[in-house]
């Protein structure tokens, strides 16, 4: 919802903290995900993720969540799907060029990022979206990557 989306960006610092606590918990549960099978966990997990992030961020389930790098403003809500910053058409009042009555997603993102501890991630260039991952759980993907990295590090030592 649009009003909720604006509210979460205003509290970007809080949601950054929430996610930073939430992520390690998911990683700790890695044995469960592997036992269950990541592919089997995918369906329920993506449903849960969609419900939470859909409500809070108007998440579009691109499957490659970049909220931590975009001031907690989901850039897939930009009518041009821009992943790297605002276009040149932003109106003087900070509204979108396409939807004149709505705030520019990236004006919001910049404000949100200034509130966050690691807000400078907004300066990193984002890779193009992998459309084959659309609809899948970004959380599981991140957890899987972190867990695998940790396992590899353990094996090496």
């Amino acid at each position: 919802m649009y009003s909720v989306r604006l509210w979460t960006v205003r509290h970007a610092r809080f949601f950054e903290r929430v996610y930073n606590m939430f992520e390690p918990v998911l990683v700790k549960l890695h044995p469960i995900w592997s036992k269950l099978g990541y592919d089997r966990a995918e369906k329920p997990m993506s449903k849960i993720e969609q419900a939470c992030k859909g409500l809070l961020f108007d998440c579009k389930m691109c499957g490659q969540c970049a909220l931590s790098s975009t001031g907690m403003s989901c850039s897939m809500n930009c009518p041009k799907n821009l992943r790297n910053g605002p276009c040149g058409g932003v109106r003087l009042n900070g509204n979108c060029e396409v939807y004149a009555e709505k705030r520019c997603v990236w004006v919001e993102a910049w404000d949100g990022s200034r509130k966050m501890k690691n807000g400078d991630r907004i300066f990193a260039v984002q890779k193009p979206v992998n459309f084959s991952q659309q609809g899948s759980s970004s959380w599981l993907r991140v957890v899987r990557q972190i867990a695998q990295r940790e396992e590899q590090a353990e094996e090496r030592s």
């Binding site: 790297n84 990236w106 990193a124 260039v125």
Partner: peptide, 23 residues
């Protein structure tokens, strides 16, 4: 690449140009 220093968010615009240069 293009840049528009005359549209908000003004503080972000130079950083956006930096990103484009990095890209």
């Amino acid at each position: 690449a293009a840049a528009n220093p005359f549209a908000p968010p003004y503080d972000f615009r130079p950083h956006r140009m930096a990103k484009k240069i990095a890209a």
